[in-house]
Design a protein around this nucleic acid. Structure first.
Lengths: 410, 410
DNA sequence: CAATGTTTTTAAAAATATTTATTAACTCAG
DNA sequence: CTGAGTTAATAAATATTTTTAAAAACATTG
């Protein structure tokens, strides 16, 4: 599947510099249009570092290829109004597949980041070889049943949790997923006949926040995803930071308590064991059994029914016990985050995941811990925010990851 | 002071794209020549993404401006031998000023990274307003006494320890250094009539290692500098990582022991209090007083004479006590480093500073700790090395920092 | 030692991009 | 509602860069 009419000749071994430069300009035009929406030729000439006549030619080419369409004109300005150009919403769809510990979700997203099709299935990510089969089948089936023709789909992005080897596209945590002699992406690409991009879910969330959420325009962003564990997504210099192998950001498994609980990773006293949403719920359940004073005590006869949502709900209603519990988790999390802050010196920290709904009940204790455990210099340039994307950060980030990689491959 | 005959016109508000592109090409040619030494036109055309006739023009221009000279021809190859071009060693000198807790050192370095003049004065970095005066005077005096004309000097790089605000060029640790209403660099620039670049010493060391030492060609490098404290220098994507404000990499002040010693930073149980060379010496001195079995016990009547060099020397001679002490420091350091590894997922860790002389006596325990505290994925792609630059990493890195910034400003 | 093959350099031609100038579209004031 | 003032798009002219071709420099080999 070709991305676009390649400018390249058939049998030229070394890419000519003029083609290389033209591709570079096409890439920056498309990236800019993707990020900013409709733009004028002047703006595009600016970002592509070229002249208006040149960029006019590029845009014409992209219009012929179905990427771009004329998109009205600017109003209100003085003088002649510039024409606007933007990505076309039809065609060039990307599949975003999000498989996590709750369910599996497939989105078909257009270049304007609108969801044109959506399907969720109640099957959670499993550490089995069959699960990849399921994913491939799920995609194939869904596509067969949808009105969107396969040829209109450009690529797929797969966001999953776990330690992902970004060079070999393997998942070290859910290692049964890895095909015997191939990468996850190569396996899926073969089955689906589509370019596939693999990204860790937390990294996708961070990218989504950086491109379209609270971290918009910021260079260095940390995003924490509090769910089963604590995931840290890192944006440095406006790019997803992967590290040498793709494992960067394992905050959940740094040791914070040498005498702590045994973590599922095999080590002792990991941050995960203290500050994840699941450990919070476990603590609450135990306390309710022990007869604590709280509206959550109403569930005393079946504490297993208590979920993180109940705790957050209770806190919002003023339940002191719930607030204290969230405070404790937030404070411990903030302590762990302080380490990351000392090392990364970020501009924003964005709280994502289920605990984001706890709003100030989680950000306040985090800030408190940061104030105590970081030098003042770090704090002055730092804000702690809760996501405003309402859970969309992950798929938005996955989509952006796919699109930006596609553009980069020109 | 102009870097080179600017191609820019006098009163053009918006830089024309053709000038911008030419400057970009000049920059990549100069950077490449600086990094690689002598090159052929074909190589330069390659890195500048342009044609050979074009790069020939650029090189001719740089030769006229005194940057570049013809540098012999390649021998041995088949076919016509290409001419080599390289930076000229005369002129375009850069002053490297290194002020630390031991002494203050001034180097004049040519574009080939050869030291053409050197002067060390036995005055250590002080947290006083007068110290900046001293630095300026030291530079002025030295220049006046040297045969190198002031006009041949392009810029100065100042490497100092401490938390440096890279956007405002202030030192938060040695805060008395900061001029009342200016940055450190602006103040020095005014006094010396030279562009001045400020860089944290550990970051300079990391850059030196990445460009010319063990981290050569690697993308993600951590360099630890063990001296009075523990400094972590971070190279990500081949660039010095500064973070939002320039504070990135404060490994020394993450809390590793909540019940530990009080650190000079005001917090408790910082890594610095456990793993710095100075704390190691303190522990050794105490043990010697307590009558431990070691060749170091010979100094029992005046333990204050025992330095880190004695301990390392003893270890190399097989002294079990010294080896144990180094092991303990290395292991604790490795534990702290494991956190940074979990977050940065680097390719190499390079040990610098006085403890580098301890060689395997320090790297072995570090590796041991990493093996215990990091997931296997991280370890597989990671090596721990001792610097091979013999203490030159810092000034080499400072020089590279200045040169690369100068080129970038074209 | 000349012929052949290889690679760099230089020169001329072709392609491409940028500037400048012109035309078009539109406000707003009088 | 007309003309001055603005800004955008287009066209023509200019400049630059790349490509292609030819020449030069050198090694190898029969």
């Amino acid at each position: 599947m070709t991305l676009m009419t390649t400018i390249e000749e058939e049998s030229v071994p070394k890419k000519s510099v003029v083609i290389h430069k033209k591709n570079l300009r096409l890439k920056s035009v498309l990236s800019y249009l993707y990020q900013e929406g409709a733009c004028t030729l002047a703006q595009l000439a600016d970002v592509a570092h070229t002249s208006i006549p040149s960029v006019t030619g590029l845009v014409e080419q992209l219009m012929e290829e179905g990427w771009v369409s004329s998109n009205g004109i600017v109003t209100g300005n003085n003088g002649r109004r510039p024409a606007l150009f933007g990505l076309r919403p039809d065609g060039h769809y990307v599949i975003v597949l999000d498989s996590n510990t709750h369910d599996t979700r497939l989105l078909i997203v257009n270049p304007l980041r609108q969801i044109v099709f959506q399907r969720t299935v109640n099957r959670r990510l499993e550490d089995t070889a069959e699960f990849l089969d399921f994913l491939a089948q799920f995609v194939t089936e869904t596509l067969a049943g949808s009105v969107i023709p396969k040829t209109a789909i450009l690529a797929m992005g797969l966001a999953i949790p776990g330690l992902i080897d970004a060079r070999r596209d393997l998942n070290l945590t859910y290692s049964s997923l890895n095909p015997t002699s191939q990468s996850i992406t190569a396996w899926l690409e073969e089955r689906l006949d589509l370019p596939v991009y693999l990204i860790n879910d937390t990294k996708a969330t961070a990218l989504g926040e950086n491109r379209f959420g609270g971290g918009l325009g910021k260079k260095h962003v940390l995003s924490i995803n509090i769910d089963w564990g604590v995931g840290l997504g890192i944006i440095l210099d406006g790019k997803v930071f992967q590290g040498a192998s793709g494992y960067a950001g394992e905050l959940g498994h740094i040791q914070v308590d040498p005498d702590g609980e045994l973590c599922y990773c095999g080590k002792v006293g990991c941050l995960d064991t203290i500050t994840s949403a699941s450990s919070l719920v476990r603590r609450v359940q135990r306390a309710v059994l022990d007869g604590c004073v709280s509206q959550l005590a109403a569930q005393q006869n079946d504490v297993s029914q208590i979920t993180i949502h109940h705790v957050i709900e209770a806190a919002h209603q003023g339940d002191a016990f719930a607030i204290d519990q969230l405070h404790e988790t937030g404070y411990q999390l903030g302590k762990g985050l302080s380490i990351a802050i000392n090392l990364f010196n970020p501009e924003v920290i964005i709280v994502d995941g289920v605990l984001a709904q706890a709003a100030v009940f989680i950000t306040n204790p985090i800030e408190q811990a940061i104030n105590k455990h970081c030098l003042s210099g770090f704090r002055n340039d730092l804000t702690v925010e809760v996501t405003k994307l309402n859970g969309a950060a992950k798929w938005l980030g996955t989509h952006a990851y796919v699109m930006e990689n596609l553009f980069a491959d020109f």
